[in-house]
Design a protein around this nucleic acid. Structure first.
Length: 458
RNA sequence: GUGGAUGUAGCUCAGUUGGUUAGAGCACCAGAUUGUGGAUCUGGGGGCCGUGGGUUCAAGUCCCAUCUUCCACCCCA
């Protein structure tokens, strides 16, 4: 044994057959809903040029990017002076020009700019692919995980936001996950910062009040002070962040607070319009909540902000997104507004596993297995086997003529419903013995009746 | 990136104040049963005790480092 124990990198996972069936159930469900609303699939490479990725996720985000070492004699080609500065970040840029994608939104923006002349706007696309973050792993936090993004770019209409609400509702309804959809608007947050006289502290304010559920109002206040927000402004913020009531009641309060802020009032109007669609059409099973403390960290959101939490499971958000007015602007295409959300498939999986929400029927794939007695007997089974497959039933023949005990055991382990047994007696009578592995009952039927028999007894 | 816990068979875990050859259950393989599975019984294979160093006559056990996983921050799906 020369080699050490095999392992995979920190924060990554292998997926066995049972897990894959369940993961595919999630992906298929999400894909089907996306497609139903008219979104089209795209894919982009796992790696992007670092210039595409850097600076899009803030300083923290840049640190979490996986960088890919250049090929060849990259040391010779690099400017060696950067290595002596002791700045690993600068050094890494001298020897890396590619990185693994951090999310699907930025590559999408790049895609849109690059193919702008071939794309029909408004462009509705979905994308289901893994992303990588050099984060420290925790429960529900992986270094490689799948995002399922839906975005529409090239339309300012709030009908798009409403459509995303419908999609979120339908996905979680189908997956039977009990969720709350939290809504906010970046313009309202800007308005608040403006009204309390701390416009330049917008990010600090939002980051702090985002934690209110977790650490409480007092801790939020002290964090605000630490971040340099004036005491007077902190006091002004109190009635806003501690407000309660229905969505409509909260909107009335916030409208009054923000009446002197143009941008704030714009945000209120947007949110009112969105809630207007939601309430007048109705029919949602997901609870929708106006939550002022919802302030996603991403720098590029400019309008609506979405976040979905599972009600019964303590895990981070399982879906999130928002509107970004100028994302493509970074890549040189101006005046293109987009809005989208991203479903976190891995966390959805964790929630469904914990709540036992996966359908039983996902377990088995093969329905019928033919026991192998030997070459002659196996050949006798082949035609019946093909007939089953042609009729759309997954069936297989055990490849080796092992002991029947072993073969039937294999059926059990794989949850195969029927075992077909054909030895000398059956061959002579042109029959097949079909054993139901659940009930244990066994029946002799004529060779040509197998497909029909299975169809009727499954 | 900061702080804390963790690691013994494929899995879940025992393992005394440091003291012979490190155990159990489950799983796996074989047999009881040459054409009938799940149950039972019998037997069997499996371990660099995460890795590297140190203390000691003696280390799974104590010390240091490192990695993994988990937890809390930061941030996020």
């Amino acid at each position: 044994m020369a080699s050490s124990k095999p392992s995979i990198p920190k924060g990554t996972r292998d997926f066995g057959p049972e897990q894959m069936v369940r993961r595919n159930f999630i992906f298929d469900t999400i894909r089907e809903v996306f497609s139903r609303y008219g979104y089209q699939p795209i894919e982009t490479p796992a790696m992007e040029n670092l210039s595409t990725l850097l600076g899009k996720y803030g300083e923290e985000g840049d640190k979490l990017l996986f960088k890919i070492l250049n090929s060849g004699d990259f040391i010779d080609k690099a400017d060696s002076s950067v290595f002596k500065l002791g700045n690993s970040n600068a050094a890494s840029l001298a020897i890396c020009e590619k990185g693994l994608r951090y999310d699907l939104t930025v590559p999408f923006a790049r895609f849109v700019v690059q193919y702008q002349n071939d794309i029909q706007f408004p462009f509705k696309r979905y994308q289901i692919q893994p992303v990588w973050r050099a984060d420290r792993p925790q429960k529900g936090r992986y270094r490689e995980f799948y995002q399922c993004d839906v975005d529409v770019i090239g339309s300012n209409s709030l009908l798009n936001e409403y459509e995303l609400v419908l999609i979120i509702n339908e996905v979680f309804e189908r997956l039977k996950i009990h969720t709350v959809l939290k809504l906010n608007n970046r313009k309202i947050l800007s308005g608040i910062a403006e009204v309390i006289g701390e416009s330049d502290k917008l990010i600090d304010i939002t980051v702090a009040i985002d934690k209110i559920d977790k650490i409480g109002i007092e801790a939020v206040n002290s964090e605000l002070r630490e971040r340099g927000v004036a005491e007077q402004a902190v006091q002004k913020l109190q009635p806003i962040i501690s407000m309660t009531g229905t969505n409509a009641e909260k909107l009335i309060v916030i409208k009054d607070v923000l009446k002197s802020s143009e941008i704030g009032m714009k945000g209120v109007a947007e949110l009112e319009e969105l809630f207007g669609y939601i309430e007048s059409v109705g029919g949602l099973s997901t609870k929708v909540e106006f939550d002022l403390s919802l302030a996603r960290g991403l720098n590029y959101y400019t309008g609506a902000i979405f976040e979905v939490k599972a009600v019964d499971v303590q895990i981070g958000s399982i879906c999130g997104g928002g509107r970004y007015d100028d994302l493509a602007g970074i890549f040189g295409l101006k005046n293109l507004s987009g809005v989208g959300v991203s479903f976190g498939a891995d966390r959805i999986y964790d929630v469904m596993l914990q709540q036992e929400l996966f359908p039983e029927s996902l377990a088995a794939s093969t329905k019928v297995m033919f026991v192998n007695f030997g070459e002659k007997e196996a050949v006798y089974c082949l035609k019946a086997l093909n007939r089953l497959r042609a009729a759309g039933m997954s069936a297989e023949l055990y490849p080796d003529s092992s002991k029947m005990k072993k073969q039937l055991d294999y059926c059990n382990k794989r949850n195969i419903h029927f075992a077909v047994i054909a030895g000398e007696n059956e061959i002579n009578a042109n029959q097949l013995a079909v054993k139901n592995m659940v009930t244990g009952q066994q029946e002799l039927i004529s060779y040509d009746n197998l497909t029909e028999f299975i169809q009727h007894n499954i």
